[in-house]
Structure formats: C-alpha cells, structure tokens
Design a protein around this nucleic acid. Structure first.
Lengths: 154, 154
DNA sequence: AAAAATTTTGCAACAAAGTTGCATTTTGGT
DNA sequence: ACCAAAATGCAACTTTGTTGCAAAATTTTT
C-alpha cells in the first residue's frame, strides 16, 4: 500500500484548529462567554447559513433575544461571520471561511439558496468573475446570490 | 447652425411612452387608482431604487402604510418592479426595464449600491457572466450586487 | 349615465424584527 | 480572591410587515 500524499496531512491540522471555538474567540480578542461559545459552535455544526430565528430556536431559552442580536453583530464586526443578501431579504449569517480581517470582509464567493428546502450554501470554490463597471464606479464588495434547486433536492 | 442629429429625435418618443403611467397600469390589467399612479410615477422620476420608507416619505400622508405595501406587492407580482437583495437586508424596489412577464422576472443585470450616498443603481448594460455550479445544483435566479463608490461620489 | 359588481383602500389590531438604557452578572487580569 | 471592564438580561420602545373587514373608489353592465 502506497503512502498518502503529504498534501492531505498538511490540510487536516488546519481544519481541526478552525473548529476550536474558544481559540477563534481568543484570536479575535473576544471574552469567552457561554453565548458566544454556543452560538459559534452552532455555525460550525450547521453546514449552511443561520438566521437569527434559527439560532433562537436552536438555543431554546438559554439566551435573551437581545444577546443573540449582539453576539451576531460582534461576530460580523470581527469578521467571524458575514451576512448573506437574499432575494427575500431575510438576514442570514454564515461563517467566513476565508481570512477576513476585522471590519474588512472579503468573502467573494457565491451563495446558493435552495427554493425547495431553504438551505443556504456557501460555494467556496465557485469564484465570482471580474465585472467591468462603468466609468466612475469603484467596486468594494461583491455579492453573488444564486437561487434554484440544490443537490439534495435534485 | 447645424441641425441636431436624428438619433435624439428617435429616442425621445420612447421615453415619453415609458413614462405614461396609466398605460403601464392598463397594460398590466390593473385598475387605475391614485396610489398606483402616484407611486409608479415616483419610480419613473427617481433614477435609483426606492424603499418602502422612501415612498412613505415622498407621498406624505396621502396613502396608508398598508396601501403602499400592497401596491408594491402588486407591482412585483405584475413584473413592473423588482426587489433588490442587499447586504444590509433592507428591501428596495426598482423598475423592471427589461420585458419582465407576469410572475417571471428576468432582470439579470448588476445592481450597484453606493456606500457614500446610499443610492442604488441598476446597471442595465452590465450583464452577469455565466457561473459554473457544482453538480446537482440548478440555477433559477441570479442576483449580483456590487457595493462601493458611485460616479457621483467619486 | 346610473346601478351593480368587483376591486381597492383605510382603519384597527396584531405579529415579528430590531434597538436602547440600565441594573445585574460574568469574565479576565492581578 | 478581588477589582475593573465587559457582557447579559430585562423592560420598554421603534420599526417593519401582516390580516380581516367595513367603507370608498373603480370598472363593468345595462
């Protein structure tokens, strides 16, 4: 039996590190509280985006509604999660998988919304092609949201 | 003094036709009411997108809040206006300039949001490039929203 | 042109979503 | 374990959006 290529061994520790919720909070200079730990863990457990309502349901009455709002706001400010613009204008949050720095998101990947099951996918490996804007327009952030039917509902 | 080029004379009647609000309502089999006329006129006067709040301010206390909601809903259903997904999840509406048929929007142009002045532009002539989705994903609607600095704030 | 039928509007009441100030509790550092 | 700073929970409030129904306006019919 052949040895696995080294590339795999290099990528695994990175993944493990990422799912350590406490480390992420520390790295972002946030005090480690129950709400932040639990809510951030929810994002790592879920493979799709979460709305405020989702989090409220998933946490039961552990936390006040206001705390959830403030926690999400903090995460967005720190670049831990980002909001996804949707056609139905319901706010959804998803983990920033690229290295977003504080206050400056660059999650320029495609978001997919399933009309059937309502799931939101971050298609990390589908990149947005360059768009030529008219003269005088300067591009800062780009959001590409595609809706349709996902692989599970296909 | 030279005569003006004919091109100008050709484009003017088209504009006049488009701004005839009554005709548009008739064409869409909607009864002509004061609220529909005035609100639709607002969209033709404004060169950017409008939110519900914008319309409420612009119409003063001519109409009830509920009427504005219902009018906008009707316009969306008929394909007269479309909603623009934004990162801050505030609902904005803009005229459909392509020939959207009832219930089926195909406003596949790019939307631009200015961070400075807050204006929303429909970049009708910037088209969204084709995106290659992973297997099993089927694309129905695509929204591309770019934010940054517009030509006026440049 | 007036009456009947249909549609739309305004009102009231409600539900959901999000914000703010402040006292209490929890966290991080010593 | 103590203290200062930060985060939480509570209450009250604002904004946003929805629903049912009677009154008013619009369209259709005669």
């Amino acid at each position: 039996m052949r040895a696995l290529p080294m590339v795999y061994l290099i990528t695994i520790p990175e993944l493990l590190m990422v799912t350590n919720v406490k480390e992420i909070l520390k790295k972002n200079q946030l005090s480690i509280t129950e709400s932040r730990r639990k809510i951030l863990q929810l994002f790592y457990n879920a493979n799709d985006a979460l709305s405020h309502a989702d989090i409220e349901k998933l946490t039961g009455d552990d936390f006040d509604r206001v705390t959830i709002y403030r926690t999400l706001q903090t995460f967005v400010e720190k670049g831990i999660v980002h909001t996804i613009p949707t056609a139905d204008n319901s706010v959804r949050y998803a983990l920033c998988k690229d290295n977003c720095t504080e206050g400056h998101h660059h999650d320029n990947h495609v978001h997919f919304l399933c009309d059937e099951c309502g799931k939101t996918y971050c298609l990390d490996h589908v990149t947005i092609p360059d768009i030529q804007l008219p003269k005088g327009f300067h591009q800062k952030q780009t959001d590409l949201v595609i809706s349709g039917v996902c692989k599970n509902c296909d």
